[in-house]
Amino acid sequence: MNEKKEIDRRSFLGMATWAIGGLIGAGFGIPAIAYIISPATRKDEAQDWIRLGSVSKVELGTPTLFKTKIERQTGWITKEEELSIYVLTENGRDFVAMSNICTHLGCRVRWISDQEQFFCPCHNAGFSKSGEVVSGPPPRPLDQYQVKEEDGQLYVLGG
């Protein structure tokens, strides 16, 4: 007589058990996912103006290499990183600051003054003076930094 009731009760208990299991699973799962992906979703550190050096060092019409050190915080370690930036000016007033990282696979490009080109030794890519792709596989021109001049010093925005 109570058979039906009994079955109802048991199926209810079964569902409740699964529900609780799901709750606990979510209790672990959601924080775990947040925990795992959190460093990846971290926004890049606030960018800041980095001083490159004196404006007078830039040669007219030739990309000039500036090296500067920046501190980067990765996880619990702070390390110093060297940043290499080519600065080009045609008139001494307007400056273009280009990263020396090849847009193809991240090798370092260098300026070959004979050929008037940036050259990437990894896959023989060439970039023009202003960073446009001339030859080889890179998908886009060299990355540029926002640049400003203040009191005869050059600054780029980066971090």
Binding site: R10, L13, G14, A16, T17, I20, G21, L23, I24, G27
Partner: peptide
């Protein structure tokens, strides 16, 4: 009784309580 769901339900309730307590 059957282990599922009678006993397991109790276990699940206790586990949930412990989880809430720890959190």
């Amino acid at each position: 009784v059957h282990f599922y769901p009678d006993i397991l339900f109790k276990d699940a309730v206790v586990s949930l309580l412990i989880f809430i307590l720890l959190a």
